[in-house]
Simulated scan of single mutants.
Amino acid sequence: MRDEPILQVQRLEKVFGRSCSHCQHQDTRQLEKNFCPYCGTVYACRNISFELFPGEILGIVGESGSGKSTLMQCLYFDETATGGEMFINHEDFKEKNIFALSNQQKRYVRNHILGMVYQNPAKGLKMDFSSIGNIAEKLIAAGNRHVGEMERVGTELLDKVHLPLFRMKEEPKRFSGGMQQRVQIAKALSNYPPILFLDEVTTGLDLSVQASVLDLIKTIQREMGISMIVVSHDLAVIRMLADRTMVMLNGEVIEKGLTDQILEDPQDAYTQQLVYSLL
């Protein structure tokens, strides 16, 4: 692992609501969990900082409502961060705060540098397009206009995620949940992004299908050297995939470190509860 991170996030904040005198000052906030009972403002992400290194899988674990999916949406520009900075180690964006880029520049980052796999495949796929058509859509968004090249890339990626190629012209709506996730992973990889985000990708899948999807993710990471952030409420998923882990609760990072270290010697009471629930 190299010393220089491929992605740095500093003091990321995401607030839903207008804030009030009871919650707008960090030192004197009167919150219930991450919610202001006076004005209804939700502090979904609070002062989140971390680094992602080349070829690494960073796991983010926490219960529903902890802010982990909101964090991913801010990183992929599905939501606008309220505050903070993000830096990517890429020649075109050296020392530039990615959150402060123009919409056009953000589209470039989203289409060339980042990939996203959503919990619900319908968010990442056009369900009425063919599977290979979904990959072509992502390639076209990145400026590719060569039909033969798009077909080659699409076929290669669908084969890599073990989708039967005789079904590549079928729409994802005709597939099982596990197969839909495979198409979504292929689409996210279509421009060979150096960074891939995976948000609860095994939730709702049968255990045997979960195992095959996790095995696929690990194989892709090993073969392609992609840096990944994997979000899950399931510590067993994080244990299988992640080199390092962050634990989130009520919009904050309460513990982070090597995954083995967190599993063997959790420091925070909530993390201890998570780990003991695995045993």
Rank of each mutant, 00 (worst) to 15 (best):
L165M: 07
S190N: 03
R222P: 00
G55H: 13
R244E: 01
M240P: 05
E91N: 14
L31V: 13
N47R: 04
T41H: 13
H146W: 03
Q267R: 09
M86G: 00
S176E: 09
M72D: 01
K173F: 13
K169V: 12
D199N: 04
H90N: 03
C39S: 15
T219D: 14
L198M: 09
V209M: 07
V183T: 01
M86V: 05
Y108I: 05
Q119M: 02
T155H: 12
V109P: 01
G55E: 14
F50G: 11
H22P: 02
S227D: 06
I262E: 11
T219I: 14
P172I: 14
M72C: 03
A81I: 01
I113G: 00
T82N: 02
R145W: 01
I220H: 03
K218P: 06
P266C: 10
G55C: 12
V117G: 07
G17L: 03
D234T: 09
G59M: 15
F166G: 00
L71F: 07
K106G: 13
V109C: 09
Q184F: 00
E13I: 04
K94V: 12
L263S: 04
Y270Q: 11
K96P: 08
T155G: 14
G65E: 12
Y192S: 12
T219F: 12
E200H: 06
D260T: 15
Q210Y: 00
G148C: 11
S19I: 02
E63V: 00
L7A: 08
S277I: 03
D159G: 10
C36W: 11
L139N: 13
H22V: 15
D78W: 09
I226S: 00
M240E: 15
V201R: 04
M86H: 11
I238S: 04
I238W: 06
G84L: 04
D234R: 09
E171C: 11
F166N: 13
L75T: 02
F77L: 05
V161Y: 03
Y38H: 06
K256M: 15
I88G: 12
G84I: 00
F197M: 04
N134P: 14
P172G: 09
P266Y: 13
Q261W: 02
E51G: 13
E255R: 10
G225S: 05
S21V: 11
G257P: 05
E170A: 15
R107P: 13
I220Y: 00
M150T: 15
R167N: 10
N97I: 00
P121V: 13
L75S: 00
K96N: 03
Q272Y: 11
V161S: 10
Y38A: 08
I226W: 05
E63Y: 08
G204L: 03
S49A: 10
H233L: 08
C74E: 03
G154I: 09
A81P: 05
I132L: 13
Q119P: 09
D206M: 01
I226C: 07
I254G: 08
L58V: 10
Y192L: 10
V15Y: 09
S19P: 00
N34Q: 15
L58I: 07
L158Q: 04
E171G: 05
E170Y: 11
G124E: 01
I140F: 08
N111C: 08
L263Q: 08
H90E: 02
L274T: 13
S190L: 01
K123P: 10
Y108E: 15
K218F: 08
S19M: 11
T271Q: 12
F129M: 10
S232V: 11
K173Y: 14
G148M: 12
V201S: 07
E151G: 13
I217C: 02
Q8W: 14
I185D: 01
E91F: 10
